[in-house]
Design a protein around this nucleic acid. Structure first.
Lengths: 237, 237, 237, 237
DNA sequence: AATGAATGAGGTTTCATTCAT
DNA sequence: AATGAATGAAACCTCATTCAT
């Protein structure tokens, strides 16, 4: 009753970069290892169609939430018949996972494009990463809000996968950045805790921004950035 | 299809304390103004039965989530027949609201009992409020996690009410505390933003603690407290 | 994928009478131990409604077979709504099992009523049992044909139960009768084999009678009876 | 809803050998007159591909039954694409018919190879035919079980054809053998009845052998053979 | 006040068959 | 001749809510 899913995912040994220099490129590689089984043969068609599904699903999901959205509605919004859709996915949960992965890709690509990895100074790098992330999340508020509140409805296998992705991309990314700061008194434990808290704070506007919707985006971005930096004991620029 | 609820709540003008001294007592009063319509006559019986429902519902909700839990299961866990339960509530959403209110009551009572209101020094008062709240939330992790992730599935009327309660108790409480600090450069906007962020950070462990479950509760409490205090630009004790 | 059923049956230690005198009464008791879980409370209502379902289901099953019959059709033929029907069963397979049990009950009651158990002479008793059984089966040709060809479509749990019932009523009954004959050279093995073959032959008309439908029932009954008796090496009356 | 099949078979007047000497050769000829329409041109390719389909289908059918097996699975097991498969058949029912015909061919070839037709003495010929048939059926238990229990799910046209084949090969074969015995009191009616019963008994192990699986094959073969011979009033060797 | 049976719309998923390439 | 993507009609089952007792 708990789980309605029967098929399992193929994750061919998702590699976890060891060492102190986890960067965005590696995060991308990690993502590539998680895929949804499909009856279709051509990988390219799969990618295209799954994107179509993601787009359609988001339209409805953001409005009604995961549970109140029926597969029929998703198919309609994606411009596919239900039969066709099930050619490219195997369950409703699969769609949620696709959206989840889409969110991660969006974030990674955004950061890659903003040249974070190239910044030398660890403190500046962290600040810019936060700022850039918060901006993105505010911009795609619906997506992040949806993913962060609905992922928990996934059934076992899918849930594990989602947590896995999170752990191996987001958390690892922040941990690396915090670790590079060399804050006195911060050992592995504190670093991980800080990384987790940073990742959490980033998503503030998407999850609880309702109450501060009258405040400008810029101000919120700056506030969260400064709050995070100061929270770590650093001095805001 | 979006909303299955037809009955509306009686909220007889929920009063919002004006002035600079919003305290926990007033939060309690606010809460008292939100109630669920029931076909039953005796108010006391209603209270008792509704508590029974809350207890039963939580047992199942925490395990299976709101949507996967059927009314029948809640009735069973509450030791009532379905017919009886519908005497004291009018819809499944009502139950979610009851749990929500229960969470708020728990928090207010907890803070009341810890003598926060009596602390003179604003900085100490804030620090203790945070610490006490984070402790409570970790202790009742399931409840807070459930409420914070499931509330958004409520249909219109119920959702408004939930947000209203939040606004008039939690947020107002933190705003008052932050406002009393007199941080330079903090006008109403910044104060509200800070209050929102604090309230959000408190709930970190319940929402994202999964990733730091190997770290001791005490350490997490202290970390969140210090992080919050520093984030506001204050000096941790 | 193989089994769609999740709920299991309560069989509270189905007793298997030991010793040489298994009779129809005991077969009845065995049957009573197999039941279908139902959300309903009053056992009497359950019995009545389940009978209603059996009657309705048979109307459609005999015409279209198990797989081609939808539950909607069964509900319709039973004069119930689908919701109501699912109050008294939990799956389509349950209905098939109910029909199976119904067939066994019919047979046991028929034999009970024909005074088989009272016949002293083992040979006469066997002959009469065969004759009586074959008659019944021809009379309820559709029912027996249906049960004997469709039972194998059941999923695991249900299939086991059906085989169990068969083993503990039908087969045991014939084994007892054959055993009482004291045929020279017949040890346990031969007795069980003979019992199985007899049970199989009885159902000839229902399964393959199509090809001899122009021949009178009486003649078929006599032919099968004599064939069976002679087959065992006995002398027909 | 009852029948999903639209295409009909070409049976160019299947000839029924008249006279008292129906033999296996003629049975083969009868079979040859039943075929499945195909869009393909070369008859030989059709035969080869259809055999491929039969082999693949059986793998899955025996495991999951007709209804639970999807066309896709059959195509996979046959090493064909779905499109290709539909070049050589026109419906799922066609496949069931192919398997049915395959079973008959197997049986006829088996008997042909065992020299039954050459045996002079009618009693010996019958005994050997039974023995040989039962052996074969036990050996190909899955096939015979499948065909005998699933054929009835066929839609009208196909069902008629299957019964036709049965009537014109199996039943006619046994009728001829029994007729040749010249049993006193056996007129056409009794002969046909006996033939039908013999054909039915042969298949005992495949249909109900589950209950005697601990007993050796040899013993079962001998038991069925002797039982049949005695049942006809003859003396076992 | 209380019971639990009844309703019926709606959910997700499967699959035989057709069709464009 | 061959591929496999696309269709769309059911299929089985669940459940919030109402109602007769």
């Amino acid at each position: 009753m708990t789980s309605r899913c029967r098929k399992v995912y193929r994750k061919s040994s998702p590699p976890l970069a060891r060492g102190s220099t986890f960067r965005l490129k590696e995060a991308k590689q990690v993502l590539a290892h998680y895929s949804i089984p499909s009856a279709a043969k051509k990988p390219q068609a799969v990618l295209k169609k799954q994107n179509q599904i993601i787009q359609g699903a988001c339209q409805v999901f953001f409005r009604k939430g995961f549970n109140r959205t029926s597969i029929r509605e998703i198919a309609l919004a994606s411009g596919m018949s239900m039969g066709q859709m099930y050619h490219y996915i195997s369950s409703k949960d699969d769609i949620l996972f696709l959206v989840h992965r889409h969110m991660h890709e969006l974030w990674i690509n955004h950061l890659s494009g903003s040249g974070i990895d190239a910044i030398e100074d660890p403190e500046t790098r962290l600040r810019e990463a936060i700022k850039s992330t918060v901006k993105l999340i505010i911009q795609h508020r619906n997506l992040f809000q949806f993913v962060y509140t609905e992922s928990k409805h996934l059934a076992e296998t899918h849930l594990e996968m989602v947590l896995d992705v999170d752990e191996k991309t987001t958390l690892r990314f922040w941990r690396e950045l915090v670790g590079a700061l060399g804050i006195p008194g911060f050992r592995e434990k504190e670093i991980r805790l800080a990384a987790s808290v940073l990742a959490f704070l980033n998503v503030f506007e998407a999850l609880r921004g309702r109450t501060v919707r009258d405040i400008g985006r810029e101000e919120i971005v700056d506030f969260i950035t400064d709050f995070s930096i100061r929270g770590l004991g650093l001095r805001p620029s």
